[in-house]
Each structure stands twice: as C-alpha cells, then as structure tokens.
Design a protein around this nucleic acid. Structure first.
Lengths: 343, 343
DNA sequence: AAATAGCACTCGCTACAGATGAGTGCTAAC
DNA sequence: GTTAGCACTCATCTGTAGCGAGTGCTATTT
C-alpha cells in the first residue's frame, strides 16, 4: 500500500484532494495550476495527473471532465499529506462549555458531545457510551430496596460500577440475596462480564437448576444483572449530510439512512475502533458501511473515571474536511475523557 | 368548518383522496369516472370537481393537470369519509409478539413498539415514554447504597414509582437521609412533581439555605431526584419517508429531518396529544411542524400500570393511508396499555 | 335542469438538435 | 523536462416541436 511519489506529484495530489473537498466538483488541470501558485502550466499538471490516474489515485467521471480522488487517494492524503489545522480557541471553548452545561448525567454529557461534534464539523456526530462487558468481573451485590425490587451492583476489575434495578416476580429475603451474591462472587472470579453471563445462561439449563428452585430464581436475577444494555449510542446532526451535494439525490440518501437505522451495524463498526488508541480514520469501503455510499468515519476513544472506554467521532462523506475534523475529534475525545475523569 | 356536500360530491371527493393517496399523482376527472364505477361521465365529474375546488377542497398544480386534495379535504375525509380497515389477524399477531419479545425493560418494549408501528404502517413510528412530572407528589425516600451513592425513590399519587441513582460529593449518614425525606414529604404534599422541583429550586436560593449547610446539600440532592429526565422518545423508520415520492427531492427532505432533529419540538407537539383520549389526528399545518412539509401525525395515548401516560403514533406524509394506519395506531395503543398493565 | 358529448385550449413532459465550453490527450517545439 | 497548440470528447444548456392528459366551455340530449 506504500506509494512512492515525487514531491511535485504529492503537491498536486494534495491540491486536487483539497480542491475537491472544498467544491465537490471534478477538478481540472488548469484549476490546479492556477490555484496552487505552482509555476507550472496546465499541460504539465495534466501529465502528472495522468500518472496519478495510472496509480489508481484519481478517476474521471467522464472523458472531458476533471479528476476526482479515489479512496486510495484519500487514504494517502490522510496518511501523509494532510496538514492538520489547529483547534481554534473558539472551538475549544464550545467543546468544553457544551459538555459542562449538559449537567451531571453521563447520557446528557455524551448526547451534548455528539451534538457539539456535529456542529463543529458540520457532519454527523456520533458517541457510543462506554460499556464494560469486556471487563473482568470482580464483585456483585444485591440489595433489596422494596417489595419485589432489587438493586444489583456490579463492579468490574477496573473499578467500574454498574447499577441495575431489577423487578422480580417473587419477594426475596435479605439472606437469600446475600447467599446469591456469595455464590456468584465465588464462582465467577476472573471471567469477563460477557463470560459471566454465558456461564449463568448455561447453569440455568443445567440439571442442578432444574430441581433447585432457589438456585433457579437466583440465576434468573443474576442474568438480568449482567445482561448487556443495548449500547447507548448518540447520533446527532443526521440532517447535515443532506447539505453535502453528493447526497442530494434521493436514492443514495435513502441508502445511507437505512444503513444508520440498524444501529447494530454502527455499533459493530465502532467496537472495532475501541481497540486502538488515538484517532482512527476509516475511508469509504473501509467502514464496511453501505458499500457504495462514500462515507468516511473519524473516531477516537475516550475513557471514564472507572476506566471504561467509549467512542466518539464524526461521520461524513468521503470528501470530508479531514484537516479540521481530525483535530476536533481528537481534542473532543481528550476533553470528554478529562471531564469524565474529574467526576 | 362544517361542510355540506351532496352524497355524490362526497363519493367523488373520497375517490379522489383515495386515488391520490394510492398514486401520489394528480387525479383527473376521467380516472375518477372510470375507477369508481359511478355511471357518470368525466364531464359530470368535472363539474363536481370544479365545485369542490371552489370550496377549497381541491387544487390543481397547473391548469391542465388533475386535482389534488387540500389539507381541508384530508380533514373532511378523515372526519367523515374514511372507511377504517380492520386490523388484520397477522398485524395483530405482529404487534403483540414484537412487544413481548422485547423483554422486560420499558425502554425495550417502547422501542420495539416504535419499530413495529413503522413496519406496519410503512411510515415513521414514534413513541414517547410516559413521564410523570405532571402527577402529584406523594412520597420520596432516600436510601444509601454505597459510598457517596444514594438511591432516591419517588412515588406519585397515582402510584407510579421512579428510581434514581444519585452520586453525591459527600457521604451521608443514614439519619440525615431519613431527615431529608421527612422534610420533603411534609413540605411538598399536594404539589405536582414539577411544582416540587420549582419549590426546591426556590428554596435553594433562600436565605435559610445559605447558612444551613445540611439543608443546602439536602436540597441539592432532592433537586436531582425530581429533575425531569429528558423525555425518552423513540423514533424508528426515519428512512421510510424517503420512500414517499413527494419527499424524493432533497430540499424538502432536509426540512423534515431538521424538524425532527429538534426532538424538543416533537415532544412539545406530542404532549398536546397526551391530553385527549383516543386516536388523535393532525393533518399538515395542524401539526405545527415545519410548515410547508406536508406531514401528518396519527397518535394515541397509552397508560402504564402506574397510571402514567405515554404517547405513540405514526408520522407520515399528509397523503397517508389513514384507513389502515388509524386502526393500527389505535390497536397498538390498546395492546401496549394492556401489556404494561399486566406487568 | 341535470347529464353528456364534443372540442378548443393549456401546459407539462419528452425528444431531438445544435451550440457551448470545460477539459483532456497528443504532438511538436522550446 | 516543460510548454504551447490544437483536435477531440462529452456533459450541459437552449430552443423547438410534438404529444397527450386533462380542463373548461358550449351545445346537445334526456
């Protein structure tokens, strides 16, 4: 995937990509020659462009039109050409103040963050709340807080805490709850929370659970306690992609919206991003989102005080303002991490 | 708003509305004459149509095109013409089974309901979770469940219960929590939960709270306990409105999506619907949603076991299949009410 | 008087043709 | 290696003409 290019070719490619990002229209040789005070004639640029086309970095929609960057070109641009803009003072202010104004709740902050991302980037903001199903189980405790109401407190090895209210069919004695807790705590050491749940589900089918009434009910409750919540995911600014001229046609737009409706797909995509640190960029088909849609994704992780990790980012057209969005995503992830750690 | 029409005019209007709903294209006099085995010639129909146009029930996009129903016509159609379809056995099955499969959580059920509405209607499904801020306060209780973690249990006069976990800055003794509870329970009797919150906010500014450290902190926690959650609202099937030919143009679509982005607007609109019983229908500008967008709304209330009331419905183009969607919304509201009451 | 047949007229839609111009690709000259 | 020149391509725009669905009016029938 490494591409060797002369300095001049790189400059020209950069010019084309940036021009195209700005205008969404095929860019011609003379435009490049003019704009980029390159002291080169359009003819020369044309030669270089023909070269770039052979390398698979440019295509032309038809013979007598300018050239358009391919995904490969964006990749190359992002990897080695793009000059990242600084996050402006004003943008920083917005990011911080929006986060703070949202109040205490995690959901509130994340939703507001999503909206801020959307506003600053002019694309779609997306935030996935941290979930700790991959963390290692440390401790569980059941507290009776009313008739047929139990609070389960689940602690991961990283210190993350998750509370969940469970309504039960029968009433439980304090004693039973303690026993349930002890049983689980002893049995589930060292497993991830996902594994814990699997084990519980297995146990429920086991012979033992069939004739031990109490155990059976205990497992049922425990299962609820560790059941993964539908990943909370905040998407804001969906309307903004309609601003992009390449999506002004109804067919493509529909494709995109349908892709987003299945948030499951998004989550899957985004869980990939969780693994690596720093800003991650997925261009076009790399997103494995609705193949032909020309969507790109810029994401970064953030962490909470309890070491659970979430994801935030921006979804936009492949033709996206990488130079400004990348720093924004980066900065926002840092700020959200900091804000959530203070807490 | 009462319109007197001869029987024949009504039949013709009905035919036009239904034809237009089916085809999304201006319907001409001959089409009406043919389709609706009316033993009338197109010329006669034309006379009637001219009449209906004078009454403001029809318009023509241009001289030599068919006629299109106005909002007024839809209103009239819905009020006195439409023949409601029965909800089919299959649809009933879908509604019930979808609700059940969603599991226990209220959110889960409502989200699934929204999706079902969208699927059955082929428009956009929308569900607003019940909130009980308008209910009368009955009882509050604080339970310490860990270091700096308090569970607030709020009960309304209708018996609805809301639990909320609150993380505090300082640790509280059991005793203090009981005292806080007693104070609030005594002081807030008979107020709605919204009013309770207002009163608390007022108290926080009062002189007394300034020098009574404990009171001040107590108020702070109480305020969190009664703070209204952002109304949970589930919108599914947004992509479906892209299927409607009248929204295939990018400009209008953008308008709609932007309107929906401010969910606040939706909530406001929907809270109106909460007040009345039965199926409510808002046509076009009656929705006070993005004026020119030609959106209609069919909603109905549902109630939970604790007597809180939520709202569900369908959003679609003014040119919507009222005859089938109205019964679906009605039936779904009934089923959801029943399901949530069993619980 | 109500219903209908007939007919001129309107106007959006489609197809086709020519003009335009941005932009390429190639070649020959610098 | 760079550039000027030029023929060629092809989307886009403009104008025109024909088509046809559908109206509105009038004269005629029932």
């Amino acid at each position: 995937m490494d591409i060797e290019l002369s300095n001049r070719s790189r400059q020209i490619l950069e010019a084309i990509v940036e021009d195209y990002i700005a205008t969404a229209e095929p860019v011609g040789s003379s435009a490049v020659a003019r704009r980029h005070a390159l002291t080169l004639s359009s003819a020369t640029v044309r030669n270089v462009m023909a070269n770039l086309e052979e390398l698979g970095l440019l295509t032309s929609p038809h013979t007598s039109a300018g050239r358009i960057p391919t995904e490969k070109a964006y990749r190359f641009y992002v990897d080695s050409l793009v000059a990242l803009r600084q996050v402006s003072r004003d943008e920083k202010r917005q990011i911080v103040s929006h986060c703070r104004q949202a109040g205490v709740g995690l959901s509130g902050i994340l939703k507001e963050t999503s909206r801020t991302l959307s506003q600053l980037s002019n694309y779609m903001g997306i935030v996935v709340a941290p979930s700790f199903t991959a963390d290692v189980f440390r401790h569980i405790e059941f507290i009776r807080i009313g008739q047929r109401k139990i609070l389960a407190i689940l602690v991961s090895s990283k210190g993350a805490v998750q509370n969940r209210l469970i309504e039960t069919e029968d009433d439980y004695a304090l004693e039973d709850l303690v026993r349930m807790g002890n049983y689980l705590n002893a049995r589930m050491q060292g497993l991830t929370i996902t594994q814990v749940r699997e084990l519980i589900l297995e146990d429920m089918k086991s012979e033992k659970a069939q004739y031990d009434e109490l155990l059976s009910r205990a497992l049922k409750i425990s299962e609820q306690a560790v059941r993964p919540e539908g990943d909370e995911i905040f998407v804001e600014g969906q309307a903004r992609i309609l601003d992009q001229p390449e999506f002004s046609d109804a067919g493509r737009m529909k494709e995109i919206y349908q892709a987003f409706e299945q948030k499951g797909l998004l989550v899957q995509l985004l869980s990939r991003c969780m693994k690596a640190d720093g800003v991650q960029i997925y261009i076009g088909s790399e997103t494995s989102l609705s193949q032909s849609a020309g969507i790109s994704l810029i994401t970064s992780r953030f962490v909470t005080s309890s070491n659970t990790v979430g994801m935030l980012g921006v979804i936009g057209p492949t033709r996206m303002g990488y130079s400004s969005v990348i720093p924004i995503v980066d900065y926002t992830a840092r700020m959200v991490s900091r804000l959530l750690s203070e807490n």
